[in-house]
Amino acid sequence: MSENPVFERIKNDISENDVVLYMKGTPIFPQCGFSAAVVGVLTHLGVKFKGINILEDAALRQGIKEFSSWPTIPQLYVKGEFIGGCDIVREMYQSGELQQMLGQKGIQTKAA
């Protein structure tokens, strides 16, 4: 059983940080419209998150897709749980489910 060594890093990141966004670029300079959209939602809600730039690390870029069984970037994790990519985050935000889920998990947001 030789697990991908990148998985260990991912597990650490998502357990040590409440909200983690695997993205292209950085929260300040996203390099993809879909990553930028998720950053926009999180920022609008006042959620503190750790952005991890997968463009800087080829092993991570491939590894995160395998770890999540999800072939695209961005990917949002909250309290270690995979929430989804851009479409899902956007839909959940629009329906209010995202705010509700963050609240249930004890993540602080700006009063909407």
């Binding site: 069984s69 999800w70 072939p71 695209t72 929430i83 989804g84 479409d87 899902i88 839909e91 959940m92």
Partner: peptide, 14 residues
């Protein structure tokens, strides 16, 4: 779930 649905589509379009 949303995640499960998208995974199904992704699998079909691997």
């Amino acid at each position: 779930s949303r995640v499960a649905r998208q995974r199904l589509v992704y699998q079909a379009l691997t």
